[in-house]
């Protein structure tokens, strides 16, 4: 076991992939000399050189599209986009090309591309660097959407994502980069599919992913001290969505709260709640509850940002409101 940051876990995974397969390369804005805007790729340029750690111009559509083309050309690109907000500049390439190419070509061409990006708020970066738009991408057939919330997943999802013959988007919540935790020295690849139960409990199921997992666990700690058993399910993969694990938990606890940093309307939380009501309606003792971000562009001031985001206290209140 070694204590590492989430950022270091990601970096080790990139490094290991680049050592293991010379078709893997990293490109994006400031991934090289700068070391990555969140310092994930720090030092990789020195180790692998500018051909495999490529600084790109500020042109998301072109370099994401070039990643698609390079994947078609036999490479295994890792494209870093600074934040999910910026990824909208490449939305056309991701949705109209990467996600659709295999289908449009009847299986002749696939896109084994991995796109990593930061998501989420909590660092006072205001309305153009803070949103959680991964739910939009989870809407799109042909994409695999991952949200590593733990160091094991941050370290272990990249290699299997590169092995996936189809495009994978990997969302790293910005509040996690500095989190330190134990990581096994032999931590290896993890399955990409399947939600994980991060904490066992019998009274209520709290569903979270990415940056909301720590929120859910904090709420579970508090409720646990009051004698309420909270089961915390980490979705891990937003598409495909493992509704079965969520439902089997709810069938046992009879109550569910979904925590999602995205906006409530038309959100991933709505999808999860819908699956629960479709598959476990008669097992529910209360309506499915949701804790989401306030429907505002993310504000700058700390107290406003805190008020806009799902907090452990909000989760605690939602659980209590269900009568758990």
């Amino acid at each position: 076991m070694t204590v590492v940051t989430y950022r270091e876990a990601l970096r080790q995974a990139i490094r290991q992939a680049m050592v293991s397969d010379d078709r893997v390369f990293l490109m994006g804005e400031d991934v090289g000399r700068y070391g990555g805007c969140y310092a994930v790729s720090l030092g990789l340029l020195q180790e692998f050189g500018p051909d495999r750690v490529r600084d790109t111009p500020l042109s998301e559509s072109a370099f994401v599209g070039a990643g698609i083309g390079a994947a078609l050309g036999g490479m295994l690109p890792i494209v870093e986009v600074m934040t999910v907000n910026f990824s909208l500049l490449a939305l056309d390439q991701l949705v109209n090309t990467a996600a659709a190419l295999r289908y449009m070509s009847a299986g002749q061409f696939g896109v084994p591309l991995v796109v990593r990006m930061t998501t989420g708020a909590g660092r006072q970066l205001a309305a153009q660097h803070s949103h959680s738009l991964e739910g939009w991408y989870a809407h799109v057939p042909g994409l695999r959407i991952l949200a590593p919330a733990t160091h094991e997943d941050a370290s272990g999802m990249l290699w299997p994502a590169l092995q996936d013959p189809d495009p994978v988007l990997l969302f790293e919540h910005g509040s996690l980069y500095n989190v330190r935790a134990d990581l096994a020295d032999d931590a290896g690849p993890v399955p990409l599919e399947g939600a994980a139960v991060r904490r066992r409990g019998d009274d209520v199921t709290v569903v979270a992913y990415g940056g909301t997992l720590p929120t859910a666990l904090a709420a579970a700690d508090q409720l646990g001290s009051e004698g309420i058993g909270v089961e915390v399910v980490d979705l891990r993969s937003l598409r495909p969505l493992d509704a079965a694990t969520v439902v089997s938990s709810v069938v046992r606890t009879h109550r569910a709260v979904v925590v999602d940093e995205g906006w409530r309307t038309g959100s991933l939380s709505a999808e999860v709640a819908s699956r629960v009501t479709e598959d476990a309606f008669y097992d529910l003792d209360a309506p499915v509850a949701r804790v989401c971000s306030a429907e505002v562009p993310m504000p700058y001031a700390k107290h406003l940002e805190d008020a806009a985001l799902p907090q452990p206290a909000d989760v605690v209140a939602a659980v209590r409101a269900l009568g758990a």
Partner: peptide, 23 residues
């Protein structure tokens, strides 16, 4: 392809060329 987004094939072509260049 066969790309029906005007300009959408341009970066894809650059990427194919990038792969050829790197290899």
């Amino acid at each position: 392809g066969g790309n029906a987004i005007v300009g959408g094939g341009l970066p894809l072509a650059a990427g194919l060329a990038l792969a050829d260049s790197m290899r």
